[in-house]
């Protein structure tokens, strides 16, 4: 198992991806040391930022025997480290990606930035690797905003924010000078969406209606069976 592996699987889709991730990650954990020498080459400019931007936190994790029956919030296990300026940039970008609309509230309304801060401040290798992508990316976004509009990203109009985002929203389509920024954007989008869709409001936006105790499990309702042209075969 475990896969996961491992044993039976609750949701193979998740398990498959988790297993890929964990294999890679565990290989990395097995490697003797992490540190600046092992960080990916981020290329020129801000993405080759000094260690003051990407320096990993020196705190400890939650250990191998945390109380898993508890309810936690960002900051409970290690201090949050984003500066006020970094948080403002992150909130603005997260709200561009996950705005308030007919599907639910904006990212900032469900504290997505707190989860990003917890993530980027975490003492574990996978999260520290993200830190080396996200922190320079936030700085690049501010510099790009100043360069084009002489205005902080948070103060840009929606159209101005989109002008920048459209240049960096998909690495395969991005111009050469935007490749690193595009890698940042896609990773940031994934992290923001991971947090957003972990919340009650995110579940509603997605159409997930579980995690409630029920007295029976009746399977898909008739309209789902009809739409798919299937029958409930388990009687």
């Amino acid at each position: 198992m475990k896969t996961s592996q491992r044993n039976g699987i609750r949701d193979t889709v998740n398990a498959l991806d988790a297993s890929r991730l964990s294999r890679r990650t565990v290989m990395k954990w097995f490697a003797a040391a992490t540190g600046a020498a092992n960080l990916p080459d981020l290329g020129p400019g801000v993405f080759a930022a000094s260690s003051s931007v990407t320096a990993p936190p020196t705190t400890h994790g939650y250990g191998t025997d945390p109380d898993v029956s508890g309810y936690y919030k960002p900051g409970d296990f290690w201090p949050l480290t984003l500066t006020a300026a970094q948080r403002e940039t992150a909130i603005s970008l997260a709200d561009v990606i996950l705005p308030a609309d007919h599907l639910g509230p904006a990212a900032s309304d469900v504290r997505v930035t707190d989860f990003l801060d917890e993530w980027l401040s975490a003492p574990y290798p996978a999260q520290q690797k993200d830190r080396t992508v996200i922190m320079p990316g936030l700085q690049w976004l501010e510099e790009e905003s100043q360069r084009r509009f002489q205005t902080p990203f948070k103060s840009l109009g929606k159209d101005q924010q989109r002008v920048i985002c459209d240049d960096i929203c998909w690495p395969a389509d991005a111009a050469a000078r935007f490749k690193k920024a595009a890698e940042f954007f896609v990773r940031f989008r994934t992290l923001a969406a991971s947090a957003y869709y972990s919340t009650e409001a995110g579940w509603k936006a997605l159409g997930y209606v579980g995690n409630v105790a029920m007295t029976s499990f009746d399977g898909p309702p008739p309209e789902v069976l009809t739409k798919l042209g299937i029958e409930q075969t388990v009687k």
């Binding site: 475990k2 574990y124 919340t199």
Partner: peptide
């Protein structure tokens, strides 16, 4: 009976419950 994570949402666990070197199949 008292040590199980039952209805905790991912946003109620550290790092949204993802696997870490400490909890290699996730927090819960």
């Amino acid at each position: 009976d008292v040590e199980t994570s039952m209805f905790q949402r991912p946003d109620q666990t550290p790092l949204l419950g993802v696997a870490t070197p400490d909890k290699q199949m996730g927090f819960t």
